[in-house]
Nucleic acid binder design. Structure first.
Lengths: 122, 122
DNA sequence: AATATATACATAAGCAACCAATATATAAAT
DNA sequence: ATTTATATATTGGTTGCTTATGTATATATT
């Protein structure tokens, strides 16, 4: 007799739409605190720091990185590592300033959200 | 002689993009805890609870209310109060369930965001 | 040798959510 | 008479994200 075990993987779908405007802030902050990061590394770091619950897709990340670079908040340096190109991103001075500003705005917004949703009392 | 006082109102513009997909959650939660609310009242409550820092515009609110009603999460009852029509919104049973779910998802997201932005240590 | 997985960057199409502006209308205040 | 506050609603536009696709190399598996 053979026992068949059916494993149902229920992908929650709850992963969706949870970034919403805070993506550039997250990217800037991560790059700032690690000194330099490349795109793929950022996706993995976000996944790791959120226990796999937030998955940063490339379609969202790369346009955001390019935009932040165009705005003068990030600089790049491409290196070849193990046969593959890696594009490292660094904060510019302006990038450091805007990061601090964006992080504090997000912190304020979180406070408001907690008040509106009665999360303070939890 | 007449002294003209020019008052320059500098609208910060920082009000922008601060709702971030949490609008329907906020609306549902507020209506749920007050029992019933009408649109204008919601805009004023959000403004009051956030010390004027989050301004919920009508162009965002009314489509959201209509959508939540169409989805079966809100019911309405129109009353005439002091000559003006007021459209009160109530949570349906489904609305109560989805509110609890959305609030806990938002709470989880806030936790992730705080970790990514190093806000825990503040 | 062939295939799959992980690494690494990137773009295109499309949709949902939000903002700014506008519209209508009544009541109260100046 | 005009402005402000109350009250609901729509339209047009933009941004930000998702899904899907594309390219390419290195490593692991079969």
């Amino acid at each position: 007799m053979v026992a068949y075990v059916y494993i149902f993987l229920l992908y929650s779908g709850m992963n969706k739409q949870l970034i919403k405007g805070s993506l550039s802030t997250i990217v800037l902050k991560l790059v700032g605190r690690e000194g330099r990061m490349y795109g793929y590394e950022i996706t993995q770091r976000v996944r790791q720091l959120t226990d796999g619950q937030i998955r940063l897709t490339e379609g969202a990340l790369y346009p955001t990185l390019h935009k932040l670079e165009a705005e003068g908040y990030l600089n790049t340096k491409t290196e070849i590592v193990e046969g593959r190109a890696r594009k490292y991103y660094y904060l510019t001075e302006e990038g450091e300033a805007i990061t601090a500003q964006k992080v504090s705005e997000t912190a304020a917004f979180i406070q408001h959200l907690q008040k509106l949703l009665n999360l303070n009392t939890l």
